[in-house]
Nucleic acid binder design. Structure first.
Lengths: 252, 252
DNA sequence: GCCATGGCTTTGTCCGGACAATCGAACTAG
DNA sequence: CTAGTTCGATTGTCCGGACAAAGCCATGGC
């Protein structure tokens, strides 16, 4: 008996003229098959040797493709058994995501209003986060983010001087991360802290909540691939309208 | 000039008689060197071919070791340049962690008080999370978690029936996840949602806060490697004493 | 009936080599 | 002096093969 169910051995093929790596092509096709349900959860994937022979690839290439899916949490390998599609509703691992992109992906009609863009001397906390001397002038951007025309979050970002031009027009029509990427900064990692506290009078007014209402807070320092801190953000979200959702994977 | 600084080419060696895979031995040594500062941030690691030759390994093995560190976010590869130690305070990516372990690792003297362990019919929400029929009897565990003898969080966990014995004694002396692992369950992934809301009178009393005080909330459904939901947790944390901290990595 | 053994299947690890793509720096031409 | 080009260095991809380790199942002995 064939692993997947005999009748339809799953159409897979690779294009050797394409510049896309072969292992990546295969991984994409398998991932698509899983998401579309053509590879049901629990399905055995058939052994790597046969799969390689069927596609005219070598075993290392096939392994590299499968390994990338295992790393994503879509599949599980067991020695002596085989590789099977994992049985759950895995979405995607936590990414270094931007609120703007998240809202847009969820069809939430994001909009941004820039409240201020100024230069300010860095406080001790901000200087430490960005790796600058206290008192250095840093860019400050304060924005209000809406979804469906309702205020969702108050965003305060601090950026090192001379990192990036910050035209208000662009800040309103797209996200900060997208602007960074577009100007050649490759984001690498971020350190986040998520907490909660009561709204101040000012925050309550901006977010259309009562003073003292619970707010979700997030502080994030973002680093590029050279290890340089490129942004320190201090954000508050309306707890009544927003929660962080994400998927965790065990490592091993 | 040698990549790291000429004088000390970094002592590396592998033990071929060990059952530990060679790539893993190498990865461990490199990671230790990074953490101890023997490999300074920004340091070039020297090309893979030479490194392989120096250790008597093949290039694929060395690559596998380095790749695992790149996946952890400790190093960055650039074609035509080399591999360098990443320049920042990367700790570790967000894990499927238990509060108990987190507190213990931070030296916070965790303690647990079991408030109840009962069977209850599942509500629609709980049944959906665990993949059971509404009304099925599920285990309910309610605990109060302390750090330094102060209440930190109120933990409510729902577990499928017959999954695990839940002796109160063990629940108080260790974490739930540790008990699961010990009974042969291999945790694989979890879906989390983090939000905030105001404390109810009961929660305020248990946590030594005022009613209406902001609380940090976390809901988590945990799956094992067969995709079966093994736990649904609904927890509240004192926002004045606790925040979630974690590190995010870009994927690419 | 039950348990141990052995064999088969499948993934895990490792090797050695080949060529392509990309980056950075030195070099050259204007 | 500047801009474009070439070239060496380094990682990225891919191949084919070999043996080891682990899990599953059937066989056989008790």
């Amino acid at each position: 008996m064939t692993p997947q169910g005999a009748d339809q051995p799953l159409p897979l093929s690779v294009d050797r003229t394409s510049p896309v790596p072969l292992y990546f092509q295969l991984a994409q096709q398998l991932e698509a098959a899983v998401e579309q349900g053509r590879l049901a959860p629990g399905t055995l994937l058939g052994n790597e040797i046969d799969l390689a022979a069927r596609l005219g690839l070598s075993r290392p290439t096939v392994r590299q493709a499968i390994q990338s899916l295992v790393d994503k949490g879509l599949m599980v390998r067991r020695r002596g058994v085989g590789t099977q599609v994992v049985h759950s509703q895995v979405r995607r691992p936590l990414e270094l995501s931007s609120l703007y992109d998240d809202l847009e992906a969820a069809g939430q009609r994001p909009a941004t209003k820039v409240l201020r863009t100024t230069m300010e001397p860095a406080t001790a906390e901000i200087a430490a986060a960005l790796g600058l001397a206290e008192g250095t002038e840093v860019n400050l951007v304060e924005r209000l983010r809406y979804a469906h025309d309702e205020p969702m979050a108050l965003l305060r970002n601090h950026l090192p001087p001379d990192l990036l031009a910050l035209p208000a027009r662009e800040l309103e029509s797209t996200g900060l991360y997208r602007m960074m990427r577009a100007s050649g900064i490759t984001l690498h990692s971020a350190r986040q802290s998520v907490g909660a506290r009561a709204a101040t009078a000012g925050e309550a007014g901006a977010l259309d909540e009562e003073p003292g209402a619970p707010l979700l807070t997030m502080e994030r320092t973002t680093y590029d691939d050279t290890g340089r801190a490129v942004e320190f953000g201090s954000h508050v979200y309306r707890a009544s309208r927003y929660a962080f959702e994400f998927q965790l994977l065990m490592r091993g």
